[in-house]
Amino acid sequence: MKKVYRRPKSLKRAAFHYCPGCGHSIVHRLLTEVFDEMNIQDKVIGIPPPGCSVFAYHYLDIDMAESAHGRGAAVATGLKRAYPDALVFTYQGDGDLAAIGTAETIHAANRGERITSIFINNAVYGMTGGQMAPTTLSNMKTTTTPYGRDTRLEGYPVRMSEMVALVKGAVYIERTAVNSPANIKKTKKAIRKAFQAQIDDLGYSLVEILSPCPTNWKMNPLESWQWVENEMTKEFPLGLIKDATRTKDSTGKRDAD
């Protein structure tokens, strides 16, 4: 009999602590599948954030080091500069990457640091209990926007990927989602491409993943998957945002922009 499904080698034998319907566990699995397929398990070093995924190291069987809130890209920069043979990625939420860590992210991208960011966008601060995130949709209710996000007072949802795409050091940026089998497959492809850009020494790569948070959205898993499809993608359209990997070589002399 042929085995068609197995636990990836890079995934530890542990039960996920994430809520039912949460996107983290799917992304974790995709990451480990990519590590296995690219055979880079012994080269990757992950930087998980404070947040629900702070325990990512309980599941990913790779070297990992915790970072302070928002500082992932800076920590990854230091690590990669000190040991360029490593494949370094940050795993960050929307509050982490698009609010407190905006400066670190933009500038690491602009320096073209050879690192990869996996950016989980679920439109709320998950672990702290569902407060407004920079990516919270207009009129969306959270614990700190109990009457809905008022754009006049609280601003607009931040399109971080589009912002990062503007800087020259960023070579590959794609927005995907993990709310359907088709989108999950696309997400895996994007993760693979992002790591390939790093392996090819081209520059900074970022995959933004729209990810359901049924608990804080106060929905059941199915509703949350549909909400990603029907509401989130209106503000955050899926698809390739920037790909300069074919036109940029590692010397940076040829430029896509």
Partner: peptide, 26 residues
Amino acid sequence: CSFVQAESEVSAINMVYGASLAGVRT
């Protein structure tokens, strides 16, 4: 060796943290 002019002191110290993780003097 590597030198980076960071975007802030906050970033600089976190780069130090990253480099120290990799086992070098920083």
